[in-house]
Design a protein around this nucleic acid. Structure first.
Lengths: 245, 245
DNA sequence: CGACTAATTGATTTGCTTCAAATATCGTGG
DNA sequence: CCACGATATTTGAAGCAAATCAATTAGTCG
């Protein structure tokens, strides 16, 4: 495995990461090795221990980020203190970048859910990179476009469908994005709480707990503390699309 | 007023439209007159009588559109037949374009709510224009980015807030975007039904009717058949943000 | 004036939240 | 290794916001 060694963030050792992740990322796929080197040189790699907040809602967007390892969640806090999890970021995905490129405030917090590694750039650096390699701009745009279409669909789904259905959709999305084949189905490959799920589906942890218990009962899922395995994706799809399982 | 006369869509007369709209539109603002001419020449202008469907949910995205006059709504239909109004388009705004540029299916129907005029391009024509004038691409990207950030915020708001609050937010958005000063406040400048509002706020026409009646009572709004006037934007903002009015 | 679309308003039901408390699981330090 | 605190989850009961059901009334247009 190709490994890049960057910086000396800790006294003890530099941060190593698989450069393949970057080569396959949504922003930089298809770039030449030289261009990739430039990209790495222009940014900073840093470790994020679980719980670290990368940026905060309302902060001026002055940095673009791409995750190399781990998971980061994007969480919006409302006036009344309640929260909504807007996205979970996996390796290769960018975050904060659209807001930053548009000189807008970050619309939400970004928090590492497990120990992670990210690479980030200042806005000038990012603009410079795009100038040097316009395809980076095109790819960012495409990624943003995909997200826009996806969000638009989700928006329609979220308002108007019942909770069980929304939870099913949320699980399916998580599964597609962060699913790892497990003995008995597909496991969400990072720790996720009922609370997280509730904040994604727009519900409460109580309702999620009950719903998940019912799904477990029917063999559709197998859930435990901070772990969820989808055992019957078909049934879940059925539930998400028709509202009946 | 500068007027462009294009094509001979009806036997009787060509379609005239104010080219200022295009000059100020999100995709083409800042373009030279010559470039604008190119843009117009590459596209087709057409009239949309109220109720016309411009494109349908699920259709392959093979065209990009920009509204010149009138109003178009973007409506998503769910499996159970219920609908969600995702956006209202006003003059100068583009629609269908992001999906088209990404070779994706349109995620929703586009329907003219009043007699309107649009200009549209095939994908090849659009790509050609962007190649000739890269700033068009940049502007489209910026517009999509703005929409993305906006949607992301709305997503957080829509799930988890109560109906009255969501209706207040919806009214405020409509007011900002389609408000015309009226004797007594700001009037939404196109006919909008309780049903439309319900589909935007993720509710039912019954609840919207009751909520609006209550707001009318308190002097916050003045509503009639397919017409809504906001008389006290402050109160509405208060309601949208705190949930209490 | 009908025929149609839009809006109101009351009564009823229900899905989900909220409130409340118990229980389970994990990590950690003695 | 076990006890203990912190975190996560479950489960029951009660309350309520909003959907649904059911008519009626009000505008609008040909």
């Amino acid at each position: 495995m190709a490994v890049a060694v960057v910086g000396l963030q800790t006294r003890l050792m530099p941060i190593a990461f698989d450069i393949e992740t970057l080569r396959r990322s949504e922003m930089f796929s298809g770039l030449s090795p030289e261009a990739l080197e430039l990209v790495v040189a222009a940014g900073s790699v840093r470790r994020l221990s679980a719980g670290t907040r990368v940026f905060a809602q309302g902060d001026p967007g002055v940095s673009g980020h791409s995750l190399l390892e781990g998971r980061v969640k994007i969480v919006q806090t409302r006036a009344d203190g309640s929260q909504a999890v807007l996205r979970f970021i996996g390796p290769g995905e960018m975050y904060g970048t659209v807001a930053a490129l548009m000189n807008q405030a970050f619309p939400a917090d970004a928090v590492a859910v497990v120990d992670s590694v990210e690479i980030w750039w200042t806005i000038p650096a990012l603009r410079q990179l795009i100038r040097a390699h316009p395809e980076i701009g095109l790819r960012s745009t495409a990624a943003a476009g995909t997200r826009l279409l996806d969000l638009q669909s989700r928006m329609g789904e979220m308002t108007g469908e019942r909770v069980e259905q929304r939870i099913a959709r949320t699980l399916l999305r998580l599964m597609e994005k962060a699913g790892r084949p497990s003995g008995d189905g597909v496991e969400i490959d990072f720790p996720i709480t009922r609370q997280d799920l509730a904040e994604m589906a727009g519900s409460t942890l109580h309702t999620v707990s009950r719903t998940l218990a019912a799904l477990d009962q029917r063999g559709v899922t197998a859930s435990a503390r901070r772990r969820i395995i989808v055992r019957d994706p078909r049934a879940l799809t059925q539930l998400a699309e028709t509202g009946v399982g």
